[in-house]
Amino acid sequence: MPPSNAAKCTFVIDGDLPVGLAMNAVAALSLSVGKLTEGIIGDDVKDADGLSHRGITGIPLPVLRGDRATLRDIVLKSADFPDILVVDFTEVAQSSRSYDEYTERTSEIASAEIPYIAVALYGAKSAVNKLTGSLQLYR
């Protein structure tokens, strides 16, 4: 992975998701990216009173809007960029009540039929931009 000053993490969300489900998808993806990416979170900082505040990410985190076909294309095209970390989030994951249910249901779906609703990409800015540069901000 590139150093954090040359990196970018972008989230692409299905624009048809209700806002609450879209926020849930970004939260779930963020946790995975944070776990898998060393150095993405900065050090804790102190305010003028000495109160400590946990470190947050120091890189851009745009949230973009796409449709399900676009999400599938991004996931498939990302295979051409082996240095990009890709974390996908599916309708199956969001609708499952447990991780066991999610893994069982996913194991019954062919790769071409997986219903992507969100994806996070982390890597070099230029590579992430090649995959997402034409998309609009999620508003």
Rank of each mutant, 00 (worst) to 15 (best):
residue 20 G to N: 05
residue 22 A to T: 11
residue 23 M to T: 07
residue 23 M to S: 14
residue 23 M to R: 07
residue 24 N to F: 01
residue 25 A to C: 14
residue 25 A to V: 06
residue 26 V to G: 01
residue 26 V to Y: 03
residue 27 A to M: 08
residue 27 A to L: 10
residue 27 A to R: 06
residue 28 A to Y: 03
residue 28 A to G: 06
residue 28 A to W: 03
residue 29 L to I: 00
residue 30 S to G: 15
residue 30 S to Q: 02
residue 30 S to H: 00
residue 30 S to D: 01
residue 30 S to V: 02
residue 31 L to I: 11
residue 31 L to A: 12
residue 32 S to E: 14
residue 32 S to C: 08
residue 32 S to F: 00
residue 33 V to K: 01
residue 33 V to M: 06
residue 33 V to P: 04
residue 34 G to R: 04
residue 34 G to D: 07
residue 34 G to K: 03
residue 35 K to D: 09
residue 35 K to M: 11
residue 35 K to Y: 11
residue 35 K to N: 11
residue 35 K to A: 13
residue 35 K to W: 08
residue 36 L to T: 04
residue 36 L to D: 13
residue 36 L to F: 08
residue 37 T to E: 07
residue 38 E to N: 11
residue 40 I to P: 04
residue 40 I to D: 02
residue 41 I to F: 13
residue 41 I to W: 02
residue 42 G to L: 12
residue 42 G to A: 13
residue 43 D to F: 02
residue 43 D to Y: 00
residue 43 D to M: 01
residue 43 D to C: 04
residue 44 D to P: 04
residue 44 D to N: 09
residue 45 V to M: 07
residue 45 V to G: 00
residue 45 V to E: 05
residue 47 D to R: 05
residue 47 D to Q: 08
residue 48 A to N: 14
residue 48 A to S: 15
residue 48 A to D: 14
residue 48 A to Q: 13
residue 49 D to W: 03
residue 49 D to Y: 11
residue 49 D to L: 09
residue 50 G to S: 09
residue 50 G to D: 12
residue 50 G to L: 10
residue 51 L to F: 06
residue 51 L to E: 12
residue 51 L to V: 14
residue 51 L to D: 09
residue 52 S to K: 15
residue 53 H to E: 08
residue 53 H to Y: 14
residue 54 R to C: 05
residue 55 G to C: 02
residue 56 I to A: 11
residue 56 I to L: 15
residue 56 I to V: 15
residue 56 I to M: 14
